[in-house]
Structure formats: C-alpha cells, structure tokens
C-alpha cells in the first residue's frame, strides 16, 4: 500500500479535528477582550432611525417568537431593542406565538426593565402566548382587549393602566418582529398600513427579507448577532452581541480558509493522479 500524500490526508481529514479547531477558535475569540468596531449597514441604520423617530409615550408592539435554540442571535436583539425603547420613553407590549418564548421574553424584559425603573403595567406589558398569529393580528386590529383578554399576570387588558383607551393595533406606532421564523409576511399582510414594521431575523432568515426592505414594507432590519452588534454600537452599549462578534468573525475566516484548503487539496490530488496516469 502506497503512503498517502499530504493532499490525500487533507481530503480525508477526521471531522473531529475540524470540530476541535472550531471549538478552540470560538472559545479563544470569546475570551479575547479586543472589540472590533462594526461598519453600520444601511438596514441597521434604518432600524435605529425608525425607533429614534418615536415620541415619548408612543405604543410599540414587540412580537417575540424565538426559543432557546436561537438565543445567541435573538436575545441580544431583543435586549438592545428594549433598551432603545426605554431610552425613547416608549411604552411597549410583548406578544409571543412561540410557547417557550412567552417565558423567555417575559423574564428577559422583567430583568432589563427592572434595571431602568420601567414599571410593569404602566410602561410595558406582556400579552403572553397566542397560538395563531394571523387570527391574533386580525383580532387586535378590530378589538384588542377582547382578542388578548388578559396579560401574563392575569390582569384584564381593559384594566391595565398602559392600555387604557387602547382598542386597536392602529393606535400603535411600530411593530418589531424578533423571530427566527417567517412571521414578518404575516405582520405585513394583516397589520394596519399606518403602523411601521421593523424586523430582527436570525442570519439565515435575513436573505428572504431584503425584498420587503427594498419595497419599504419593513423599515429596517437587524440581522442576527452581527446586526445586533452594529445596533449596540449605534446605541453606545456593550451587550451580548458585541462580546460574540470576534468569535463569529474569526469562525467565518476559519470556514473560508478550510474551504480554500479543501479545494487546493482536491486540485493537487487530481494533478498528482494525472501525472501518475
């Protein structure tokens, strides 16, 4: 049996070695305290400007539909969004069509708002879990209190201080969809035209949304953890995404390097086979 060349060995590399390399790369760059400033992409700038245009007391609906599986991308987005809304003194309500997100977003919002002195019921509220977004949006447009009925604490919507006199989604200024799912077309289709929509998808879902961004149906977009880092930079805060970003950057570099190495190995191997033939 002939000994394997370096190129053949590279083509047959043990996948466990690749896993270890990626793990070391991620851990190492999570620990490196150097922060690389991001270049602010136009969708994130538009997202920021849309929230900046809000007036104190404006109502905002946050649709939080993510579970722990996409926590690395959606949690920094939601945290930064809530911090920005509090800075603008906007009032917000959160709604979830994902059962696990009901608890995750409620606990996250409680933690973030407590630190800033935002009061539940007066400044923000959580509507809990609704199983069907289409029907919920249609219901909220025509009769919000009877669609939602009660918040996560069991208080009737009509008795919540923040929602006194609020009967319809039309009275909201903005909808923010934080999600790894394709829910933004539902918001676009069924929410009132006068309510602006901005979007926080995971990275894999963002490609589909550029068409809505282009048409102006969504006013801005924060894509995954890297979008959240740009957004945090605009807000002047160092959040979760700013801490992840080095690991993401260098993981991309590692993947690209190994794709190139794989192709070089394939070409060199083919060359050697031709020579032998």
């Amino acid at each position: 049996m002939q000994p394997q060349t370096i190129w053949q060995k590279m083509l047959a590399v043990d996948r466990r070695l690749l896993y270890v390399l990626l793990l070391v790369n991620i851990v190492m760059f999570l620990l490196v305290p150097v922060r690389m400033p991001a270049s602010i992409s136009p969708p994130v700038q538009k997202f920021y400007d849309t929230i900046e245009a809000l007036q104190p007391g404006d109502l905002v609906m946050i649709s939080s539909n993510w579970s722990a599986s996409t926590l690395a991308e959606n949690q920094p987005q939601l945290e930064a969004v809530i911090k920005h809304l509090m800075r603008k003194k906007a009032r917000f309500s959160i709604i979830s069509i994902e059962a696990q997100s009901r608890d995750i977003s409620y606990r996250l919002a409680e933690r973030v708002t407590k630190a800033e002195g935002y009061e539940y019921g007066r400044d923000w509220v959580h509507f809990g879990f609704v199983p069907n977004l289409t029907v919920a949006i249609k219901g909220m447009v025509t009769d919000l209190p009877n669609t939602i009925k009660q918040d996560v604490r069991g208080t009737r919507v009509s008795q919540i201080e923040m929602l006194k006199g609020v009967n319809s989604l039309r009275q909201y200024k903005l909808v923010i969809d934080v999600t790894p799912s394709g829910t933004v077309p539902i918001w676009i289709s069924y929410s009132p035209k006068e309510v602006n929509i901005i979007y926080c998808p995971t990275s894999v879902m963002a490609a589909e949304a550029y068409t809505y961004l282009d048409s102006g149906q969504i006013k801005g977009m924060v894509t995954g953890a890297k979008g959240a880092q740009e957004y945090e930079q605009l807000l002047g805060i160092v959040g979760l995404a700013s801490r992840f970003t080095n690991a993401i950057s260098f993981s991309h570099v590692l993947i690209i390097t190994f794709i190139l190495l794989g192709n070089v190995a394939m070409f060199m191997n083919r060359l050697a086979e031709r020579r032998e033939a």
Binding site: L22, A68, A72
Partner: peptide
C-alpha cells in the same frame, strides 16, 4: 440544552462546508 443542541449545527456546517 436547547441552545446547545442548536449550536452543534455550527460544527456540522463547518465539516460539511469543508
């Protein structure tokens, strides 16, 4: 556990891309 399960995809993507 949920976050860890989903994170494993990154390792498969790396191996598959290579």
């Amino acid at each position: 556990l949920d976050a860890a399960m989903f994170s494993l995809i990154a390792f498969y993507i790396f191996s598959a891309a290579y």
